[in-house]
């Protein structure tokens, strides 16, 4: 079954084409990688799939709902775009609790479990502004997984992480995928993508120029 379908999606910003005729058909339960240099359109594609940006032309369908027609945003999604952002004056736990309050479908213990999965201390009362970039990145990943969504978009999730943390995030991504979650991720590092993904889309100048299937070691 399809998780995401894009039909001839293009985006123009102030006359400049940033995405051009993107057609995608992504099945549920896979991990998809998007590779390409800065400005190739990866982040813009993620913004369009998450509903934050409207395409200039074409349609986006997520879990059968046409964005900006049936729904404004996909129903069961979490995103990490570019850099993690939080309410800096609050603790990590309070930040996650603040976001969890909106849907009100998980308990405090679920938040604690998500934080422990990314090796953050839920009892840490320090405001997030005192966290390092790596800790903020891990907190953003905790936010993405805490509600166990069906679709996760991770834009450069390994930014600011040391080698051990990267391996740990690999493990989390695989675990999330094993429970049936569809994951889309971008990375500058080809190794991240080849280690994790089932299929890799290479982008350049707002277009998909190549698709590669990767046989994963089980």
């Amino acid at each position: 079954m399809n998780a995401i379908r894009l039909f001839n999606v293009s985006k123009k910003i102030k006359g400049r084409v940033v995405l051009q005729n993107i057609n995608l058909n992504l099945e549920r339960g896979n991990i998809y990688g998007f590779a390409g240099h800065n400005g190739s359109g990866k982040t813009m594609l993620f913004r369009i799939i998450s509903g934050l940006v409207k395409p200039s032309s074409g349609t986006v369908e997520v879990f059968g709902d046409v964005l900006h027609k049936d729904v404004s945003f996909p129903g069961d999604i979490s995103v990490l775009l570019e850099k993690p952002g939080f309410l800096e004056q609050y603790s990590a736990f309070d930040n996650l609790k603040f976001l969890a309050m909106i849907k009100n479908k998980i308990s405090d213990s679920d938040i604690v479990a998500a934080m422990e999965r990314v090796k953050l201390n839920p009892m840490d009362k320090r405001p997030v502004k005192e966290y390092s970039l790596g800790m903020k990145q891990r907190l953003a990943i905790a936010q993405c997984i805490m509600e166990q969504p069906q679709l996760i978009l991770l834009d450069e999730p390994m930014n600011g992480l040391d080698e051990e943390a990267v391996r740990h995030v690999y493990r989390i991504i695989k675990e999330e995928n094993e429970r049936g979650c569809t994951i889309l991720l971008t990375s500058h590092n080809r190794l991240d993508i080849e280690t994790l993904c089932d299929q890799v889309y290479s982008m350049n100048d707002g277009m998909i120029i190549d698709v590669t299937n990767i046989a994963r070691d089980e």
Partner: peptide
């Protein structure tokens, strides 16, 4: 507001 927080809130609310 911090834009990424705002974006997350919008996605979770599903209603601008």
């Amino acid at each position: 507001r911090e834009k990424n927080v705002e974006h997350n809130v919008l996605i979770l609310l599903q209603d601008t």
